[in-house]
Nucleic acid binder design. Structure first.
Ligand SMILES: NC(=O)c1ccc[n+]([C@@H]2O[C@H](COP(=O)([O-])OP(=O)(O)OC[C@H]3O[C@@H](n4cnc5c(N)ncnc54)[C@H](O)[C@@H]3O)[C@@H](O)[C@H]2O)c1
Ligand SMILES: NC(=O)c1ccc[n+]([C@@H]2O[C@H](COP(=O)([O-])OP(=O)(O)OC[C@H]3O[C@@H](n4cnc5c(N)ncnc54)[C@H](O)[C@@H]3O)[C@@H](O)[C@H]2O)c1
Lengths: 233, 233
DNA sequence: TATTAATTGTTAAATTTATAACAACGCAAA
DNA sequence: TTTGCGTTGTTATAAATTTAACAATTAATA
């Protein structure tokens, strides 16, 4: 089996963590560090050192016993694995609040991921540039996507339009879609889809805060019960 | 064991899906549907019907055999479980591109989750209102958080400021933090923390697109090999 | 009335993911 | 030199999560 075959079988969760490790390592590099221990990476990411070592084992990276992992080497290896050699071009669909925020945020962040186009229906936005990236008429989608060799589309149109936009993207030959609207879309086999609704994360936080509140309240009640019981003596 | 105790032990993944189910159900309700089958929910969420039925089993909801699940009832039950009775107040830290986008997006979306305050350091923003929510000076954080009974903070300050902001939040008695900056923070036991870096999701899509591209290229090579072999006959 | 088709609810099995355990190593200090 | 400490790499174990299997049920239909 080729090395690239084992990489194809990396657990999904490991892929996510590799991206997170690299992000953390890039920050460490800025701070003039050159080596890092598994427990240091673990602390930053709120996971265990074993998890880190296991992930690095899976990608076949070895550190040194006393110094840990060479940060630059590790960054390069992770990049080899998760980045595409030739680079991948990305488009944002819908230059509203979120679309513009994302464009601004992603722009220039990663060598191998370039946002090269955006699309909208609003005539005030079409023809303009945001962050030096041109905003095209959505009706030109297929033409531009093919011309610019765009492989990934980020959907930030109004929720009601998400499915229509996804369909157009598929028709234009897109390979991957990241849908940020709260309305899930359907894509055919072969197109990689990731959906993320930010409200789910907020509701999750809210749920566990609520749980913790109730747990705390329960403890107060229990203490009271014990208190009453004791006073019976 | 009380019913509330079983709910405390719901798998984390189930919690996330419950939020997603509700979101999908709310959309269905708008479309005048009143019942829904497990396989319909599953299709929307890109999961299996068994997964859906299992989740609903865990929260103790029963549908009817021929009509499926009553949408309104299910929404109400999910809301009972994941929402806090009294409601939870939320603040956004950093009224930049992302902060304003989120404020605009979340505002009024959920009865039981209210964004009631925002904070910034920029004098141009302090004192103003965005979406009718006042923007306070970050130095007033503790005062406002206590006064307004804010339990959750969403961090959208520049990454360099994320840790300092988290510390302040903890000091102010916050119960949950949702950190959208790419720089992870640390919080003490008892504060629920969720971190989300959008670039990780994009990199994940990119990785699987790359994999699919390589797989397709491999197949072409294999076909060529076979072709050559065949021509040897 | 029996039969068929579709669906739920639940237990059992499989898969995926995380954690634990521990040998091997290398340096520092006794 | 040897002992101790802290680290890595890896295998074994455990936990979490998903999927499969299937009995039970309902309503439509032959
Ligand atoms: N704002 C947020 O923080 C946030 C967070 C999570 C999810 N979302 C979701 O992201 C989407 C966009 O949110 P927003 O706040 O940026 O909304 P917005 O209204 O500010 O932006 C939507 C943009 O899409 C354009 N548009 C409309 N129809 C289009 C079409 N068919 N093709 C291309 N462009 C089209 C509009 O002209 C507008 O510029 C919504 O679905 C929203 O639910 C937003
Ligand atoms: N824009 C995006 O789509 C996006 C996506 C993912 C993550 N992020 C992250 O979210 C954060 C904000 O991004 P943005 O694009 O909104 O940046 P931005 O510069 O537009 O906004 C930052 C805001 O925080 C304020 N601020 C600075 N220091 C502060 C402090 N100590 N306390 C309170 N407020 C403070 C600034 O005045 C500004 O209003 C960044 O960390 C960024 O990496 C942004």
């Amino acid at each position: 089996m080729k090395a690239s075959d084992t990489l194809k079988q990396l657990p999904h969760k490991t892929i996510e963590r590799l991206s997170q490790y690299r992000r953390a390592l890039l920050i460490c590099l800025e701070n003039k560090k050159d080596h890092i221990f598994s427990h240091e990476i673990a602390k930053i990411q709120h996971i265990t050192p074993v998890q880190v070592r296991r992930d690095l084992m899976l990608i076949g990276y070895s550190g040194t016993l006393r110094k840990g992992y060479n940060i630059q080497e590790l960054i390069d290896l992770i990049s080899d694995i998760i980045d595409s050699n030739e680079g991948i071009n990305v488009a944002i669909l819908g230059m509203g609040n979120l679309g513009r925020a994302l464009l601004n945020y992603f722009s220039g962040k990663r060598h191998k991921l370039s946002i090269v186009a955006s699309f909208d229906v609003n005539p005030d936005k079409i023809g303009k540039s945001f962050n030096n990236i041109p905003c095209h008429n959505i009706t030109d989608m297929e033409k531009v996507i093919k011309r610019e060799n765009i492989e990934i589309g980020i959907i930030t149109v109004p929720a009601s339009q998400s499915m229509a936009t996804a369909k157009q993207l598929v028709k234009s030959g897109i390979k991957g879609i990241l849908n940020y609207t709260p309305k899930p879309v359907e894509v055919p086999e072969g197109v990689y889809l990731e959906e993320y609704d930010m409200i789910t994360t907020l509701e999750k936080v809210s749920f566990y805060v609520k749980m913790e509140n109730e747990r705390a309240a329960d403890q107060v009640i229990q203490r009271k019960d014990q208190g009453t019981a004791a006073s019976d003596f």
